[in-house]
Design a protein around this nucleic acid. Structure first.
Lengths: 209, 209
DNA sequence: TAGATTGTTAATCGATTAACAATC
DNA sequence: TAGATTGTTAATCGATTAACAATC
């Protein structure tokens, strides 16, 4: 399935949402759904749903609609939920702790294998079943285990130097919660920046309107 | 300033990013910047920056560029950072705790005034200087204090009923971290949904390409 | 004044919506 | 078969980029 590349970012960003709504439908024991009905649930248009899904293949059937289990499976595999990318986290403060549970809670294509911090108070704590290591062990750990993804939950100030080191050690993908746009400073890496605070500002903007 | 409404969502979502880059420039003691130079920093186009800013007013000066302090101030006021909306949080697990520091850390238009949870282990804890209250006190608290914004850091299952109660109690704005699209179920409320996990799926998708 | 850079209009590009023939 | 609903093409809409006259 999943024809490579050249799918627009707008489409990709909608896939997890489809995936989640299909989960709901599975829980409700619904077997099939038309683009029209799904659109109604999600407050979008049937056109858009059909257009989006057809970027990847014809998952529906004329006169019937989409089989929910099958479509859920397809989208999951497009997103890579069945992968098990070795994932490490840098920074185990409150945000890091919260995020670990996000990773482990549901199948999301990642397996968290190590957590690092530089705070003596935090090193040694158990978070999501993993003992937090001293950041000093980062290099030897990466050389031995070659993780694919690093989750950055550290302050802006440290983000650059830690990312630089990780890239040298072969890490190519980042889920970045630090307020520092990695992708602008390094090439050939895959980054998903999450600036949580930005969306609060968007909210206060909307309120003031 | 800030002509009301009818500004596209695309523009609004870029404002916090401008705001943040202007902060960096202030720290670097830079006085003015042209759209061209700012665009280079942010890996965007000068055209887009000028176009975006001109939705709100002519903040620049021909032949000079933009005064950084003034522009930062303008954008801040458009976003409402100087507001102090009374804000409450529901759910003080790891995610809630992480988010409180986001709110208090910098000026973001909100003042966190209360935190509620239903877990006896968490009730009574001090989080960001606030003692977590029993969710049972939510109603009386709201009647007395009329908060504007509720931050929802609770499981999907509880989101609907809690939101419903809050709306009845007069809360009209939500910063929603539960995996439940509030805005599809209630009218006349302002919602910013943050589905953190979605962006991890986007990342694994990109990796698989 | 000459040079730089804005504000703004026009041109291009991409994304969404509508329409409909294909087909289950 | 007739009805429903897809896959897909065409039409519309909006957002981004380019160009340039206005002006500091």
């Amino acid at each position: 399935m999943a024809k490579n590349n050249d799918i627009s970012a707008s489409v990709i960003k909608r896939l997890p949402r489809y995936y989640s709504y299909l989960e709901d439908l599975i829980e409700e024991n619904v077997e099939r759904i038309s683009s029209k009905d799904l659109a109604e649930r999600m407050k979008t248009t049937a056109s858009q749903i059909r257009q989006d899904l057809n970027c990847f293949g014809g998952f529906g059937q004329q006169g019937y609609g989409y089989n929910i289990i099958a479509l859920h499976e397809e989208i999951g595999s497009i997103l890579g939920v069945d992968k098990e990318y070795k994932t490490i986290m840098i920074g185990a403060g409150n945000l890091g702790k919260a995020i670990t549970s996000q990773i482990s809670f549901e199948k999301k294509g990642c397996r968290l294998t190590a957590i690092f911090d530089n705070d003596p108070e935090i090193i040694g704590q158990t978070v999501s079943g993993i003992i937090v290591s001293d950041i000093k062990n980062l290099e030897s750990y990466c050389k031995k285990n070659s993780p694919s993804i690093a989750v950055l939950c550290l302050p802006k100030e440290n983000a650059f130097s830690v990312a630089k080191k990780l890239i040298e050690l072969g890490v190519k993908s980042f889920w970045n919660f630090s307020h520092f746009d990695l992708n602008l400073h390094f090439d050939n890496i895959v980054v998903e920046n999450v600036h949580i605070g930005d969306s609060l500002l968007t909210l206060t903007y909307k309120i003031s309107c």
